[in-house]
């Protein structure tokens, strides 16, 4: 895939199928560390330890369940190609989190790409679910972000948050799946993150 936002769309589709109500996507750049972290967290049905372990293996997928497929192995490969790694944390009933780390300036790292399209599509095609997207450029070490998980971060250089719950509140009953609303969300995200993405080559 030519953009990381396509990998993110693909992984978030797993969350859709896992019956999640809320999916959080966090993209954090750490220029000082030359790291880019992407986390996708859901509150879906989760996986047992064995399934979670096998999920990143393209040859693991059992044909009867078709739970995962090639999406996670693909993201893992892309991360490892840039000197990074991918981790999956999951347990039945408590959701799944996927975190991939990339070398921010690595020549083999695909650009983040069009997150506006990814998020507006997810939100519009799954109106009963909620999605949060956070883009953050952080000043301090990547490791210190571990404790905070996907929540707020202290030393932010720049941050943008998109939350479909806010959008739905404003929409006041107008479906989020309306094509004009989807087009709005895509350009809203694009216009508000363009500057950070260009400045830090995300």
């Amino acid at each position: 895939m030519q953009e990381l936002s396509l990998n993110i769309l693909d992984i978030a589709e797993n969350s859709v199928r896992a019956g999640a109500a809320l999916v959080r996507v966090a993209v954090r750049a750490f220029p000082a560390e030359d790291r880019l972290r992407i986390a996708i967290e859901d509150d879906g049905k989760g996986m047992d330890a064995e399934t979670a372990k096998g999920a990143a293996d393209p040859f693991y997928t059992t044909r009867t369940t078709r739970k995962v497929g090639l999406g996670l192995p693909y993201l893992k490969m892309n991360a490892e190609l840039t000197g990074g790694a991918m981790e999956i944390a999951s347990s039945p009933g408590s959701g799944t989190s996927v975190e991939a780390t990339f070398g921010l300036g690595h020549i083999d790292r695909a650009p983040l790409g069009d997150m506006g399209q990814t998020m507006s599509l997810l939100a519009g095609a799954n109106p009963e679910m909620d999605f949060v997207y956070e883009l953050c450029v952080c000043a301090d070490a990547a490791d210190s972000a571990d404790s905070g998980g996907i929540a707020g971060h202290a030393d932010e250089i720049g941050r943008f948050v998109f939350d479909t719950r806010e959008v739905k509140h404003v929409l006041d009953g107008v479906p989020i799946s309306e094509p004009e609303v989807m087009a709005y969300m895509a350009s809203h995200i694009d216009e508000n993150t363009k500057e950070l993405i260009t400045a830090y080559k995300i």
């Binding site: 769309l9 497929g69 693909y74 095609a125 094509p179 087009a183």
Partner: peptide
Amino acid sequence: MATCGIAAGARPVLAEFVEQV
């Protein structure tokens, strides 16, 4: 919009339908 579709370029196609509609 499975992995196969996304990898083949389904997202810009869907976005274009949304735009046109």
